[in-house]
Simulated scan of single mutants.
Amino acid sequence: MSNSLHSSAFVTPRLVLKKVLAKSQHEGDGAVVRRGIGRTELKNLDPFLMLDHFSVSPPAGFPDHPHRGFETVTYMLEGGITHQDFAGHKGTIRAGDVQWMTAGRGIIHSEMPAEANNKGLQLWINLASRDKMIEPNYQELPSENIPTAEKDGVEVRVIAGESMGVQSPVYTRTPTMFLVFSMMPGSEWHQSIPESWNCFVYVIEGEGVFGCTSSSPCVAHHVLVLSLGDGLSVWNNSSKPLRFVVVAGQPLNEPVAQYGPFVMNTQSEIEKTLEDYQYGRNGFEMRKYWRSQ
């Protein structure tokens, strides 16, 4: 199709295939999350397993709990979360900071509120079968170390991948793009995305037009699943700022077997994981001795 017919910045523009409202639900110990991925309407989007927009205030939180077989990415929007795990790792991430945690063969940790009001996004990214039992790892990026760029009323924070010629230092074992955009009223942006990767948008605040100029505006707390293509166009035709994330990843095309915080490829691997956790082996050796402080 020629450009004159769809006036696009891309050969194959990505369009909105599906729109899902991230409805509030209770999670952890008294916390509230808006779950956009990992719900009935959108079970997963390979390689992404879950997206939560969380809000937590003391004494609520996410006390000691395990993970195996995937990565979690936490991006703080307000306040802070204090994290500690059974390997002795402890720290607090605050507004604008990122923690990229590879659970691998096993981690037990707690995530508890550091201030009165704490909000952020947590994304779960699946690991390929060959990577599920690797050693746990952390990449922590304070806000000031996250590459940013700005052009014509559009600002981007590059948590993973590349935008506006700037690149993130984060290593993504499952190839991933994670961009946080702020767009002023009247601005537009055209973001290249690897053509075969699955991609979604989550609108944090404001209202935007995604995909093509004729699409209806999308408002806060919606996940937009995009069609395949080489890029996404966004317009802020409203009178208020627009803030959203663009997340894309290379599909693993592997079977997913999930039981709560454990994500493997087969049911027998899940059963093995439950045994490992129960008896404290194969990565969960510290389970019997460790409690967060």
Rank of each mutant, 00 (worst) to 15 (best):
N198H: 14
L21A: 14
M183Q: 13
S238H: 04
F200K: 11
S268D: 12
Q84P: 04
E275C: 03
M76Q: 04
G208F: 03
S143D: 12
T176C: 07
N118Q: 05
E275F: 06
A128W: 01
E111G: 06
A257T: 02
P261E: 02
F262L: 06
G88A: 07
I270D: 09
R14T: 13
T12Y: 09
H221M: 01
P13M: 06
V247A: 06
E71A: 08
L224D: 12
V180N: 10
E275P: 00
E27P: 01
K272G: 03
V246G: 01
G88H: 05
K119W: 00
T74P: 06
V11Q: 15
R94Y: 06
V98C: 08
K23W: 00
N265Q: 05
A31L: 00
H67C: 00
M177W: 10
E285A: 04
V256C: 06
Q139E: 15
V170H: 11
E254Y: 08
F262Y: 05
E27I: 08
V246K: 02
G96H: 04
E207M: 02
S8I: 07
T266R: 12
G186N: 07
V246H: 01
F244R: 07
K132W: 04
L226F: 11
V219Y: 05
G161Q: 05
I270L: 15
S143N: 15
Y259K: 14
W124V: 10
K43G: 10
R34S: 08
D276P: 00
H53A: 13
S163G: 04
T176Y: 05
P63S: 13
S168P: 05
R94I: 09
Y289T: 14
S214N: 13
T72C: 03
V225D: 02
N117D: 09
V225C: 05
S110H: 06
R291L: 12
E78S: 08
W235A: 06
I125P: 07
Q258R: 15
N117A: 09
S214L: 07
P142L: 01
M184K: 15
I270F: 08
S7H: 15
P63C: 11
L226V: 11
W100T: 12
K23V: 13
K23N: 11
T74A: 06
A160P: 04
R68A: 00
Y259T: 12
I193W: 03
R287L: 00
H26I: 14
A248L: 02
N236W: 07
N253G: 14
N145E: 12
V154P: 11
G229N: 09
K132C: 04
V223N: 08
F62A: 03
V209R: 08
